[in-house]
Design a protein around this nucleic acid. Structure first.
Lengths: 199, 199
DNA sequence: CTGATTCCTTTACCTATGTCATTTTTTTTT
DNA sequence: AAAAAAAAATGACATAGGTAAAGGAATCAG
């Protein structure tokens, strides 16, 4: 029995409806699978090596997704901002051990759900499966755009794009996280910033 | 009226069934949408700027997918090998102008279909939509793996991975295409090869 | 408020890789 | 087989960006 209406669930519902309209009876079965959690700054939503089980819809805060290689070097591949899905999507899909880390850069709130429970609904809710298809397609397109950025543009241009894509974010997180997202060292980002400033 | 049974359609059917089992009645509606074409070496399957309309299932030959930036520099993002889907997937999905080129590196055969006609079947064929979902998810996972490669590994390691992922391909296409796939110049790939050889 | 962290910038030096020009090797064509 | 074209290797040089260390600035905790 639920007593209060949670505002964030409405946000999630609205997001899903931007993919494809969900029938009310589908939403009625989806909604109870989600519960709200808080993730304090610095905590991990996801750690490498385990198999991911939960998908999370970020409602407040910033999460960074990153890879770490053997020597401990990190590479920030993405920043999650409110109103988007976090979680080890590739691992959820494939069932293989997750390769990415996800860490809260600020205090966060998420709606989390067990991914297996969600996808078990596909059989009887084709509209939900359609949403899942469109989400996968959207993720694919985002990745392709990011690939084009990484491969075709130099660091300075990527920096400008970062500022466009994540307005205001630069002021909220340390610069070395941005450098890592751009694929350069903090040293190099500093050089780029100086070069831009003295013009 | 069709007179001959085309062997390649069976290959396509088998591929789709690795995603999810298709009902016979669905396959009956999918099959007639595909027709076989030949693409001679050097020809383009896809050119930048247009909106993509067709999806192609490669049955023979090699196709390279690449980006080209303003100054004409090219970057090979992927090689299609037989038994996989080519086509400007992102453009097909979003309806936006296509950003990538696809060119036959050898004589090729493909089964092509109008993507809109295919996706029009989703409403009445949930099993086909499921296949589409799983294909999108698979593409996403591939992209993520490639991203990890590009970002975490150096050129020499990526070269070794290329040889693993595309066995035999190295002998069939010019080295500068491989260099471009690795994100280095032919000069640099040549240096890497020398370094490997003298050990 | 103040000491302690954390973060950012800068400098010096070094390496990987780019550019360009030339030569060698391989492939294709006649 | 010879000639032509394409591809690959090589050398000289330039540069973007990495590493390491150190100092300054900002932020946080007690």
């Amino acid at each position: 029995m639920r007593f209060r209406h949670c505002g964030f669930l409405e946000t999630l519902k609205a997001f899903l409806n931007t993919l494809t309209p969900l029938r009310p009876e589908t939403w009625q079965r989806v909604e109870p699978l989600f519960s709200e959690i808080r993730l304090p700054k610095g905590q991990f939503f996801l750690e490498e090596g385990r198999q991911a089980a939960q998908i999370g819809f970020l409602t407040e805060g910033i999460i960074r997704a990153f890879y770490r290689n053997q020597d401990g070097t990190e590479y920030n591949k993405h920043f999650f901002i409110p109103n988007s899905f976090a979680g080890g999507y590739a691992s959820l899909i494939t069932g293989k051990p997750n390769q990415i880390w996800q860490q809260a850069l600020t205090n966060c709130r998420l709606l989390v759900a067990d991914f297996a429970a969600l996808s078990a609904l596909y059989d009887s809710a084709p509209d939900l499966e359609r949403a899942a298809r469109m989400l996968a397609e959207r993720f694919f397109v985002q990745k392709e755009e990011r690939e084009i950025e990484l491969v075709l543009l130099d660091a300075q241009t990527r920096y400008a794009l970062f500022q466009q894509h994540y307005p205001g974010l630069e002021q909220r997180i340390p610069q070395y996280h941005i450098a890592s997202y751009l694929g350069v060292t903090p040293t190099q980002l500093s050089r780029i910033r100086r070069k831009i400033a003295q013009r």
